[in-house]
Amino acid sequence: MKKSVFGFAFLFFVAFLLLSAFGMRPFGEPSFSEMDDYYIENAQAETGANNVVTTIVFDYRGFDTLGEATVLFTAVVGIVALFREVAK
């Protein structure tokens, strides 16, 4: 009973993924691109850095990087606290 429910859910999920995969747009042609065009045209003049990806990660979307650094810091604190007895 439980296995059949899981199997049905799995098949439903796979069918949904396949359906959306066939309805996807071609690679590199998103439907809305106003934001991308703004970044590509203005990022180099506004920040002075040549690498637009780093510009987005560290400047336009800085909060994302702050959260990522916080996650890494929390992981280190957790590991050091977990092994505080073993690794002296």
Binding site: T47, G48, A49, N50, T54, T55, F58, D59, G62, T65, A69
Partner: peptide, 13 residues
């Protein structure tokens, strides 16, 4: 010598 805080934050991170 370009980039502003992007370069500094790169080094810090």
């Amino acid at each position: 010598n370009t980039g502003g805080t992007v370069t500094a934050m790169n080094i810090a991170v």
